[in-house]
Simulated assay, not measured.
Amino acid sequence: MKILNLKNAALALVMSSALVACKKDDSVKEELPVVSKYENGFFVINEGWMGHGTGSVSFFDNESGTLKDSVFQKENPNSSGFEPTSSTVQFATKFNNNLYVVSKVRGPVVVADAKTMKEVGRIPGSADYDWRAFVGLDENRGLLSSSDGVYLINLKTLKPSFKLLGASGQTGDMLKAGKYIFVLNQSAGVIIYDADDLSVVKKIKSVTLGFAQTPNQKVWYTKAKFLYSANPQTLETDSVELPFTPSNTWFAWFSSPIVASTKDNTVFLLKSPSFGGGKELYKYTEGNKSTLDKPFITTPDKQSFYKKNLGYNPQTNQIVTTTVQDGYGVNYAVNNIYFHNAETGALIKQIPYSGYYFPSMFVFH
């Protein structure tokens, strides 16, 4: 009897251990990460129809294949949104899991959780500032460019701290790369700052568009008829001649229409006038000048880009573009979003949508 009891006890112990293991396995399954509401897709930042309401943020959902409008306003019904209506939403970027949405013309800087689009902070619109773009430096610091230079921002309090030396007048796109920060300024060209102490390291005159960074870490920008690359460690440069001369974007400022692949050392840029628009998108793969022989993508008949209407989607290795219909007035309510193979340029799909959105750029996860 004792032997049988021992056997039964051993069997019970094994079964108990198995049940515990099953419970552990079940708990592990329950703790698997769930893709959030605004993670499987990308954002479209809309300038808005100035004087008729504010800009907005749309979200393209990869799963449903649909474009959802005004997602920030819908997730934050009690927020003041992007008021005042006299401002325009012109720029956005993701940093430390937050989406920083920047309004021009004395508008606010709104910070939202990039997965839920719930507001987590803001710099209210003010007559004291006219913002352009944002770049994050570390957990505590970021920079905001403006119509009168660059300001250091405390990311915990969202308070402007001080204005950087070296940049005066209208300042736009910025990129942190290696130990440097590249800043595009209307009068000075590129101003390169030390990322640690924010001192000026170098200036490059007459730069028109910037910036994009390829997987080899090189930083790309345009000057005259050339596309330049800069090593972010040594600041040594190389260049290739373009088949057109890029315009700057200072006339009615918008972010430079230049982006890079995350898969290979390829840069994409629009051939557009200084006020935006244009119909041709070019591609340059480093070391292969023939990739510039002809436009990589050309818009369909009667369709034009508006501002920075190109983006590279790292989730799908696709080039995404938006267009408005040629003309004025009601033509601006005729929009299309296109998905192209980033290697061949082949059109994958087109989605038409209507409304006075005035799409200004994309933000990808």
Rank of each mutant, 00 (worst) to 15 (best):
K7W: 02
S17W: 03
S17D: 10
L19C: 13
D25R: 12
D25T: 14
F43N: 05
M50N: 14
G53A: 10
G53M: 06
G55Q: 05
V57W: 10
N62L: 15
G65Y: 14
E75G: 09
N78G: 03
S79C: 07
T85Y: 13
S87N: 11
V89A: 04
T93K: 01
F95C: 07
N98Q: 07
V102M: 05
G107W: 00
G107A: 09
G107N: 06
P108F: 07
V109K: 05
A112H: 09
A114V: 10
K115F: 02
K118W: 04
R122L: 05
I123N: 10
P124K: 07
P124I: 07
G125C: 14
S126Y: 05
F134L: 01
G136D: 05
L144A: 01
L144R: 06
S146T: 15
S146Q: 07
S147C: 01
D148A: 07
D148I: 00
G149E: 06
G149H: 12
L152V: 13
N154Y: 09
L155T: 11
L158Q: 05
L165M: 14
M174Q: 12
V183G: 00
N185R: 15
Q186K: 15
D197R: 12
D197P: 09
V200E: 15
K202W: 01
I204Y: 08
Q213Y: 01
P215C: 12
N216P: 03
Q217P: 00
K218G: 08
Y221G: 00
P232F: 02
T234S: 14
L235K: 06
L235E: 10
V240F: 04
S247L: 00
T249E: 01
F251D: 15
A252C: 10
S256Q: 00
S261F: 00
K263Y: 11
N265E: 12
V267G: 06
S272K: 11
P273R: 11
S274Q: 15
F275D: 10
G276I: 07
L281Y: 06
Y282S: 09
Y284W: 14
E286Y: 11
S290C: 08
T298F: 04
P300A: 07
S304D: 10
Y306M: 09
K307Q: 10
K308A: 03
Q325Y: 04
G327R: 10
Y328R: 09
Y338V: 05
F339G: 02
E343F: 11
T344N: 03
T344C: 01
G345R: 04
K349Y: 10
Q350T: 15
Y353N: 11
F358N: 00
F362W: 02
F364R: 13
H365D: 13
